[in-house]
Each structure stands twice: as C-alpha cells, then as structure tokens.
C-alpha cells in the first residue's frame, strides 16, 4: 500500500474510533443497550446458485455481483449480536432480530451473479448491481437502484421512494415495479421487447423512444399498455405519486 493510501486509511481509522467513542457516550432514551460497536461478517460458499434473503429494518443495503463463488456479508452496526443467520441448503438467510427493531445496520453484500435475492427493509437505500438471479425487493421508505441487472424476474415494491432499473429483460420474464410515492425510471436497451402495463395516478408516463415501437396500445389519462416490438416479458409499472420514464440505453 502506498504511503498516502496508508495515511488516508489511518485517518479513517482514527476518525472511526473517535466517532465510535462519541456514539457510545451519546445517550438517547429509546436506544437499546449499546454493545461494542462493530461488524457482522460472514462468508458462505453455496454448492450451487444461492438464494439470499436479508430482512433488515433500518440501514442501507448494497448488493454487488462479483466473480467469486462465495457470498460475503458485512454489516456495520452497533449491535452485531442482533443479527442472525441461517443456512439451509443453498438458502442463506440473514436477519435483524425482530426483538431489536431499533438498531441500524448497513449491509454490504457480495454475491455470485446467479444468486437470487430477497431483500426486505423498512428504511434505507437499496442498491443491487450485476445480478442475474431473480430479485425481490420490498421496503417502506427506500430509494431502490438496480443496475446492470439481467434477471428473469424482478419485483420491487416500496411505499415511498424512487425506483431505478437498468438492465435487460429476459424472454418470458416478469418485471414489476411499484411505488406509492416516487418516480420510476427504467433504462432499457432500444431493442427490448416487452408487454407494458404502466399506471401513474397523478403524474405523467413518458415512454420516450419506446412509444414509437408500441403496438396494440391502450392509452388513458393514467395508464398506457401495449406491446413493444414482439412483446414477451411482462413489464408492470405503477406509481401513485410520481412519474414513469422509460429511457433507451
């Protein structure tokens, strides 16, 4: 490691220590018993394509596909003991104990690309990139960003928060995005074929260049449906208070 990198790392560690001490010293009436600040770190090596489930309450979740066969989980939290994990075959389950819903845990997860994901959260950003396995994201207050995704099935459901999807739609796949309050932006290849059902209660639906190739169109004040090119994958998009925009890659 170069000198400057080492210096930067040392500065970070010093700042971490100082902030940790400050956080420990801070008293809040609702705070659970504060344990030693730390990390929850696990690595799993499933024998085949894994199904990873994370049930978090508060905190950011970032999942990145990498070229290794292991699933690596790092959570930064003041209470690592409040996180539990279980492995059943190729199913990996990590969750914040429901008896400890007040803790915040920020997760960084690396998975083999073909891992299927089920991510549950109450509040905190959710980012997923490079995954080809199925994805289900449910949260209440979360911005959700799915990037470079090539899954056959994607379901995102949030009460409040924007949703961004960038990826490819697979033949026979199902893609569903719903936000009660938030914009939904889908970044798709120009040649993507799909059956679209889009509903926006209060704002506009902008199909951009995809409007040209849409056939069998049914259009109303709050909805658009139709087939783009040959049709195929089902693309269902709903927002109650926000806009829907399809972007061509």
């Amino acid at each position: 490691m170069s000198k400057s990198r080492q210096g930067f790392g040392d500065a970070c560690r010093a700042a971490t220590a100082a902030l940790s001490v400050a956080a420990l010293g801070a008293s809040a009436p609702y705070a659970p018993a504060v344990e030693r600040p730390g990390r929850f770190e696990r690595s799993y090596t499933p024998r085949g394509a894994a199904h990873f489930t994370l049930s978090n309450v508060s905190g950011d979740i970032t999942v990145t596909a990498w070229g290794r066969r292991t699933v690596s989980v790092l959570a930064i939290t003041e209470s690592p003991a409040a996180i539990e994990d279980r492995v059943v075959g190729t199913d990996i389950l990590v969750s914040v104990k429901q008896a400890a819903p007040t803790i915040r845990a920020d997760f960084r997860i690396y998975v083999p690309a073909n891992t299927s994901l089920s991510l549950k959260n109450v509040l905190g950003k959710i980012n997923v990139s490079g995954v080809t396995g199925d994805i289900v994201v449910t949260s209440f207050e979360s911005e959700v960003r799915l990037q470079d995704v090539q899954a056959a099935s994607v379901e995102v459901r949030v009460t409040t928060g924007d949703i961004y999807f960038d990826g490819q739609l697979r033949e026979g796949g199902a893609y569903s995005f719903q936000s009660m309050k938030g914009d939904i932006d889908l970044n798709l290849p120009g040649g993507a074929a799909f059956n679209l059902a889009a509903r926006a209660l209060s704002e506009k639906i902008n199909l951009g260049e995809f409007a040209k190739g849409l056939t069998g169109v049914t259009k109303g004040a709050k909805m658009v449906s139709g087939n783009h090119l040959a049709g195929g994958p089902r693309l269902t998009v709903t927002t109650y208070d926000g806009r829907i925009v399809l972007h061509k890659k």
Partner: peptide, 11 residues
Amino acid sequence: VRDDLLQIVHF
C-alpha cells in the same frame, strides 16, 4: 478504506 468510511458514516 470503504469499510472504514462506512463505519464513520454509520456511527
């Protein structure tokens, strides 16, 4: 380095 920064942000 990223983990260190994450800890700072978190705490």
